[in-house]
Simulated assay, not measured.
Amino acid sequence: MRIEVCIDRTKPLPIGALEALSGELSKRINKQFSETQNSVQVRYAGANNLSVLGGAKTDKDVIEEILQETWESADDWFSTEGSDM
């Protein structure tokens, strides 16, 4: 599956957040969908959006839940220590 998460560029995240989100999301998605090869990309765009290519409708629903859980638990896996913010 190819998963693309677009973040509204008018609401920038801390330095390193896109890379950290991509890594954490990849880890969680690969755990849930270990039988398929998955590609996760997180980038800025004009609006928030989630695209899932190569998966079933039910897969997109599961990925939405994983994304929501990942976003809500950012305090557990993302640290801004050492950033220049």
Rank of each mutant, 00 (worst) to 15 (best):
M1D: 00
M1T: 04
R2F: 12
R2M: 11
R2I: 11
R2S: 10
R2P: 14
R2T: 09
E4V: 01
V5K: 00
V5S: 00
I7N: 10
I7R: 08
I7L: 15
D8P: 01
D8W: 06
R9S: 15
K11P: 03
K11C: 12
P12Q: 14
L13C: 08
P14Y: 01
P14W: 01
I15C: 05
I15V: 05
G16Q: 08
A17F: 14
A17G: 09
L18H: 08
L18V: 13
E19N: 14
E19K: 15
A20V: 02
A20D: 00
S22H: 04
S22L: 04
G23I: 05
E24C: 11
E24M: 12
L25Y: 07
L25H: 08
L25E: 06
K27I: 01
K27A: 05
K27M: 03
R28S: 03
R28L: 08
R28E: 03
I29R: 07
K31S: 14
K31D: 11
Q32T: 13
Q32S: 13
F33N: 15
S34L: 05
S34T: 09
S34K: 12
S34C: 07
E35V: 05
E35T: 13
Q37G: 08
N38S: 12
N38I: 07
N38K: 13
N38M: 11
S39R: 09
S39I: 04
S39H: 10
V40K: 00
Q41T: 02
Q41V: 03
V42A: 06
R43D: 14
A45Q: 08
A45F: 06
G46W: 07
G46A: 09
G46I: 04
A47H: 05
A47E: 06
A47Y: 03
N48L: 01
N48K: 01
N49A: 13
L50S: 03
L50C: 04
S51F: 04
V52S: 03
V52M: 11
L53S: 14
L53C: 11
L53G: 11
G54R: 10
G55M: 00
G55T: 01
A56C: 07
A56F: 06
K57T: 11
K57C: 04
T58G: 05
D59Y: 10
D61V: 10
D61C: 04
D61T: 12
D61F: 02
D61M: 05
V62G: 09
V62C: 14
E65K: 12
I66T: 08
I66K: 13
L67R: 06
L67N: 07
L67F: 14
L67T: 08
Q68E: 03
Q68L: 00
Q68T: 02
E69H: 05
E69D: 11
E69V: 00
T70A: 05
T70H: 09
W71Q: 08
E72K: 09
E72W: 11
E72N: 10
E72L: 10
S73F: 11
S73I: 04
S73P: 10
A74E: 05
A74P: 00
A74L: 05
D75W: 04
D76T: 07
D76H: 12
D76L: 13
D76A: 12
W77V: 02
W77L: 02
F78Q: 09
F78K: 06
S79G: 15
S79Y: 13
T80H: 14
T80M: 15
T80R: 14
G82D: 09
S83Y: 04
S83E: 14
M85H: 07
M85L: 15
M85P: 00
